[in-house]
Design a binder for these strands. Sequence first.
DNA 1: TTAATTATATAACAATTGTTACACTAATAT
DNA 2: ATATTAGTGTAACAATTGTTATATAATTAA
Lengths: 211, 211
Amino acid sequence: MLREKLNEFYSVVFEKELIDEIIEVGKYKIIKENELLLDIGNNFQLIPLMLTGAIKISRETKKGDEIVLYFLERGDTCTISFANCLKNSKSKVRGVAEKESEVIFVPVSKLEEWMVKYKSWRGFVIESYNIRLNEMLDAIDTLAFMKMDERILKYLSDKVKIMRNPTLNTTHQEIAIDLNTSRVVISRLLKQLENEGKIKLFRNKIEVIDF
Amino acid sequence: MLREKLNEFYSVVFEKELIDEIIEVGKYKIIKENELLLDIGNNFQLIPLMLTGAIKISRETKKGDEIVLYFLERGDTCTISFANCLKNSKSKVRGVAEKESEVIFVPVSKLEEWMVKYKSWRGFVIESYNIRLNEMLDAIDTLAFMKMDERILKYLSDKVKIMRNPTLNTTHQEIAIDLNTSRVVISRLLKQLENEGKIKLFRNKIEVIDF
DNA sequence: TTAATTATATAACAATTGTTACACTAATAT
DNA sequence: ATATTAGTGTAACAATTGTTATATAATTAA
C-alpha cells in the first residue's frame, strides 16, 4: 500500500531499490488538520516526504510577526528542514496541516547515504531545493511588487489550488495573520474584491471565482 | 596560484583530488566592476565559484520592477544557477559585480559527477543551498516585517560588510532601484538617518556609522 | 567659460496601509 | 432563553510610502 502511494505520487520515479529502502526505514504517519508538522525552534531529525494533503509553511519572528511562505503538497519535501537535520540546528519555519495529510518520515542519515547510491535521489534532492528556491522567489516577488489586494487574491487562489476546492473555510482574522496585516485591512479589501466580482463572502467561508 | 586561492577561500575544504579536478576543468575569470555575471533569461551552463569580490544578485519582473536579493562573496556559489544549468532553463536572477571579482567557472556536468565521487562536494552543494535558502528567508523577513528606513539601513550595512569599507560609493537613485522604491523616498529617509547620527551623506558617497 | 547633466533637498499632496472604535449578526455556552 | 464569544462591516483618523514639482549645487561636456 505504501509502495503504491510512493509510486503514485513521486514524479521523479525512484529506483525500485530506493523505494524498498524508503519503505524499510520510513515511518508512515497521518497528520491531522491544524496539527503541527514542525515548529520554529524544533530540533528535527526526520525528513518528511509528503504523500497527500497540504502543509502551510510559515515564518515567525521573535516579536511574533508572522507570514506564510508557501504550501507543501504531495510529492514535496521540506528542504528547509534538510538544513536543520544536517546541522542539528533549529527550524526557522513552521509547518501546519491545512487538511489531513499523509507523510513518510525518513531519518536524516539516509539523505547523504542515498545521494551516493541513487541517481534518482540526487535528482530529487536537487529538484526539491530548486522548487523551494523558486517558491521563495515567488514569495519575494509577491511581497516586493504586489499591493495588498493582489496579495490577498493570490493567497486565496494558491489556497484554492492546494485544497482542490474553490470554497475556503477561513476567517478574515486567519488571512490577516498569514499576510502579516490587520483584520480590518483584510475585511476592507475582501469587500472590495467581492464588489469587483472576484470572490463571494460568507461567514467563515470565501468562494473564489475564476481562480 | 589557483590552487592556493581555492584552498584559501573555500571553508568546506575539498579533497586534494577534487581541487585537482576543479583546476583541470575550471575556467578562471576576472569580472570587472559593474560587469554582468549572469542576466535574467540567460542560458547559463557554468557554475560559478567565487574566489574574491562581491556580486549583487537581484530580481527583475517583466514590468521592470527590480529588487536586490543578496550579495555573493568569496566561498559562495550561485545555487539559483544550478537550476538553470541542470534544467537548461533561463535564469531568474541577475548578478552584477559590485567590485572586481575572481570567479572559477565549472561545467554543470561536473555537479552530478562530483556528487557521487566526493563527500566534500556533496557537503558543499547542500551547504550552498542552505545558505541561499537562509538568505532568501532573510530577504523575506526584511520585506515582510521592516519599514523602509530599517530596510535602507540594513541594505547599507550589508553592503559595507561585503565591500569591507564603511564608505560606500553610491547614489540615492541606485539605492532606490535596489529597494524598489523612488529616489525621493530614499533621499528623505537617508536625511532622517543622518539626523539620527547613523550615517553621513556626501555627493555620490555614504558613510555608515556603527555598522 | 558656459551650457548641459547629474545628484541632492524639500515641499505639497495623493494613495495605501495601519489603528481604534463601535455596531451588528451568528454561533456557542451556561 | 439568555449571555457570551466570534466573525464581519464600516467610519474616522494616523502613519507610511509614493508622486509631482521645483530649487540648488556639483560635475561634466561643448
